[in-house]
Design a protein around this nucleic acid. Structure first.
Lengths: 297, 297
DNA sequence: AGAAAATTGGAAATCCTGTTCGAAAGTGGT
DNA sequence: ACCACTTTCGAACAGGATTTCCAATTTTCT
């Protein structure tokens, strides 16, 4: 609290910056974002209105996080079309002492998104019922994720991407446990500009929906054992109507396989009967990204 | 990255470095690696035998490319356990004028394999682009999972379980990215014999649904940034009707927090703009299990 | 074992980067 | 149109980062 003016002390520098400029967000009740995700949340919330140059900065940060993480302030400023000092001001508005601190957020994020970048989980056995189950669930998820990386059929995957990219319209089908996966697939496909229909069976209209499938359409089916939902029936109809069919399922015994042009096996672990979906979602996202990339070109 | 700003004679500086030290690889017939892949190829070929410290450097570069790209020379040296000057020497052996030039390789590589936000996912000439993305997605999932295990608010969690277990009827609310999570929550709750309503907004009936919430009911809300969906509106209505509200969200900026009796922060990583749901699902399953256990007794 | 060569550690010197500050330009209200 | 206030620009400054250099140490060859 001793008001040293330009001491190099980090924390006191923050306070000094806040005190000096009455308009910092901290003064308005906001707190300093501690992670990249929080920063994105603030930027996207639309609650902050920036003047022209600062908005320009915000947009650039949003669109080119890796350039911000890797570059020097001069390079970033040049790419964003502003002065270096503008970047410093931007960082200070959010309560940071300067650009360097602020850039740390981006570095953390890029490092975190980089496969090699993370450490191994350490084993602290905490005797607590809640954390014990969470730990088990996390373990099941990580086991599932590890398994797909270990053995992944790239050939099938690329065939699936090609099939879906060539399709006129994509029908996404999955019930029960698979439904959360198909819901996310449908959402991300739409966000990537890929037209698709989520067959959710609202109003029991699923059979009628698939009755409209044409030969130039494709079905993306997700199904897990036990295979007693309506998914096999729906896919059978699509198959009769000559649609291309790609499947994500969890064993070679799935009735969908003989109907499918290509398929991937994704085995999910469970803990105390609660099954993970982590691997299926990861594979699903990869599919969506692949299709979007292929469509884009 | 156009670092064309440095000192005047870049190319002549290279030659000078080469001429001065008789043992540079260039003098031995090797050429200066122009890309990160070339560097990796040279390192892995095993044709070069380094003394102890330099080998240490090579191993570190191999295992932690993102740290090399993001850090300063001092940070990298500390992590690798060598002196900064050793890194400079290493770079010069490969024909670079110094560490900065050499680091450029790593920066290029990291930036190149980071498909920029909303931008066009450029189809790299990388043959295994599919597996690279899958790898990244798995990494994002694992990062998310690791994060919740690292810092998990057990107190809030148990308060949430207690609230939900005491409720007459549980309303599960979430839109867009959060919907897959709520769909799975609703399914597993039902499978555990816990009565619940999934507010899916089919037929735009969500507002009317939450209009029926009573004081003995509870809301389980899931919401991620940007918070521009109808979820905050729905939860606000439930709050007015005196329902207990528990929330899973991804930052302290979420508008749901001030409406909630208890809440958990679950930060999900993303890769190339595709966000993982692994952590939210794991936490959700833990919640369901906790509620079911408490109801059962 | 001894000497020469290679390698390493550490501090000094230099270059560059990030930050600060005052003036200029822009904006909005009276 | 004028004034007060905010925002932006650009140059000067300070501090940090990279590089260089030399002595100390280890290795290798005779």
């Amino acid at each position: 609290m001793s008001g040293a003016k330009k001491s190099s002390g980090r924390s006191s520098a923050d306070e000094a910056a806040t005190r000096k400029r009455g308009r910092s967000l901290a003064a308005l009740g906001y707190i300093q974002p501690q992670t990249y995700e929080e920063l994105r949340a603030v930027l996207s919330s639309g609650t902050v209105h920036f003047p022209k140059r600062l908005r320009q900065v915000a947009i650039f940060l949003w669109q080119h996080p890796s350039d911000v993480a890797l570059g020097t302030i001069a390079q970033v400023a040049a790419q964003a079309g502003v002065q270096p000092s503008t970047l410093v001001r931007f960082a200070q508005i959010f309560g940071y002492s300067g650009f360097s601190d602020f850039q740390g957020l981006f570095k953390e994020h890029v490092k975190g998104s980089w496969p090699e970048g993370r450490g191994e989980p350490r084993a602290d056995a905490e005797p607590n019922a809640a954390t014990h189950f969470l730990h088990g669930m996390v373990g099941a998820s990580q086991a599932s994720l590890g398994r797909i990386e270990a053995g992944f059929d790239v050939e099938s995957f690329e065939k699936m991407v090609a099939t879906l990219a060539a399709a006129d319209l994509i029908y996404v089908i999955g019930s029960k446990r698979a439904f959360p996966v198909t819901a996310y697939l449908s959402l991300t496909l739409s966000q990537q500009g890929v037209r698709n229909v989520l067959v959710d069976n609202v109003g029991s209209s699923a059979l009628d929906q698939v009755g409209c499938i044409g030969g130039s359409d494709a079905v993306l089916a997700v199904s897990f054992s036990p295979y007693n939902s309506i998914t096999p029936d729906l896919v059978a109809v699509a198959h009769e109507r000559k649609a291309r069919i790609v499947t994500i399922t969890d064993s070679t015994f799935s009735p969908l396989i003989r109907l499918s042009d290509s398929w991937l096996e994704v085995v999910e672990s469970d803990f105390a009967g609660f099954r993970s979906l982590a691997a299926s979602l990861a594979v699903g996202m990869a599919l969506v990204q692949g299709v979007a990339a292929k469509r884009g070109t």
